[in-house]
Design a protein around this nucleic acid. Structure first.
Lengths: 256, 256
DNA sequence: ATCATTTAGCTAACGCCGTTTACTCTAATG
DNA sequence: CATTAGAGTAAACGGCGTTAGCTAAATGAT
């Protein structure tokens, strides 16, 4: 048994958890200082005051450590995002969606190195991915980082779904999303399956899903470009974001 | 002197150029197989049939080699893009701009590893950057990769400028870009300076610059997401791109 | 043709790195 | 109290980027 009769964590378990935290903290500081490729087990061992080999009692490999850190980072991002959204009441869907974007941006820019690690994720660049197909086929056999990424997306997707329901019930009046271009059956199915079902959490009309997906790509582009220093605008980024958000809102048929 | 009387390259120069090409080719194949971090000087030396130390006669460091490769990759991308654009007549600006996007996408997806290297560029992630400020202050003191990136952007930017001129002269009729949101003087100045002056090559009305910049971010988002496997749509990407291009065209006041 | 110089390459080493193996001690378990 | 599982160590293996010093060949000038 790994826990005592009181049900609480064993002394050893506490120690272990503390050591793991120490290791992660050291790795994190190296990440911030030297980037993803600058994380070194030996350097961590030195800082923690232990032999390099000892780290293998806690992580199977450097890659495993990086993945664990990725998960933590997503948890951080998600926590920040939830907190930012909860600054507004539960029915202020628009403000909450805006908050989602701002929180995403703020976190990525405030943690550039970390964000870099997340998108150039150890396991073949599948981070920030929302591959509904793989998820549908084996819901639990998918890597944890992808799941966290999905969780993050859903914070925004479900908010939009709630907003849609309000417009549908007439509780909120809106013109609805922009007119759709012609879309083949195949693409329609894919949008409904992958985006609607998995990100949004429920099936929505195609126009909503399409507009949401388009907006999602725009936001991702903004955040990645800013974090990687490729954004054309650099001194007035806040305002530029606001103009982009405005444009996306317009696509949803919302003014302001 | 480094060249003979005939003016052509010396025998040694030819040999040297050939060796450099061999080194780059080996590095490239390693890049394709193991990703950016899988490029190893020692492995290259093994493949080229030479001692690791010998490589330092050709490149100051691994980083220098990576930068050189980045430059080559940009040249490749630019050449592909130019070829794709030139499949249409010089005055078919719209088709040429679309070609630019398609070429960008095709190259990034067809050379994922290479693209990865370019955006997580050795020197502190400044790739794909179009920082007009730095350029304006010291036009020639900027790293070569950034210059190439700018060159690539300009292929599209100048095309749009040409299109703008045609609409201005009445040679082509168009409604012009979407209505602008309110934009502060500071952001206006930045858009005009960095985007208009450097990417487009001439000063354009704010509405054109703004619309172009917004579109640029969207395209970048699409390409990065697809190359990194994060695009929500995965089976009907071509069509999804087309819908996005259509939307951007609409922003310019163009139908179809 | 000879000499001086540049250049390409080598060997050997330094100090990093991730990872494995075998061994020791210590603390919790039964 | 004996046993055992866990945390830790020392030492090694093979790999890495990089440097220093040497050798030999190709080049350019005399």
């Amino acid at each position: 048994m790994t826990s005592n009769t009181a049900g609480g964590p064993t002394r050893r378990e506490r120690m272990r958890a503390e050591t793991i935290a120490e290791i992660k903290a050291s790795a994190r500081s190296q990440l911030q200082e030297h980037g993803p490729s600058g994380i070194s087990l030996r350097a961590i061992a030195r800082e923690v005051g232990v032999t390099p080999a000892a780290l293998y009692r806690y992580f199977d490999s450097l890659d495993a450590l990086l993945i664990a850190i990725c998960c933590d980072l997503y948890d951080e991002l998600i926590a920040d995002t939830v907190a930012a959204m909860d600054a507004y009441p539960k029915d202020a869907h628009l403000e909450r969606m805006k908050s989602w974007i701002w929180a995403f941006r703020a976190w990525a820019v405030g943690n550039r190195r970390e964000f870099e690690l997340m998108i150039s994720y150890p396991e073949g660049n599948t981070a920030m991915s929302i591959d509904g197909t793989r998820l549908a086929q084996s819901p639990e056999n998918v890597d944890p980082v992808t799941l966290k990424s999905l969780e993050h997306s859903q914070l925004c997707g479900r908010e939009m779904a709630a907003f849609y329901r309000k417009t549908e019930s007439g509780e909120v009046e809106a013109n609805g999303p922009i007119q759709l271009p012609e879309i083949s059956d195949a693409l329609q199915a894919e949008l409904l399956d992958k985006c609607s079902a998995f990100i949004v959490g429920e099936l929505l009309p195609l126009e909503w899903v399409f507009t949401f997906t388009s907006a999602w790509v725009r936001v991702f582009g903004l955040v990645v470009m800013e974090a990687f220093g490729s954004l054309p605008v650099q001194d007035n980024v806040d305002e530029f974001y606001k103009t982009q958000i405005l444009a996306m809102m317009k696509d949803f048929g919302i003014e302001g």
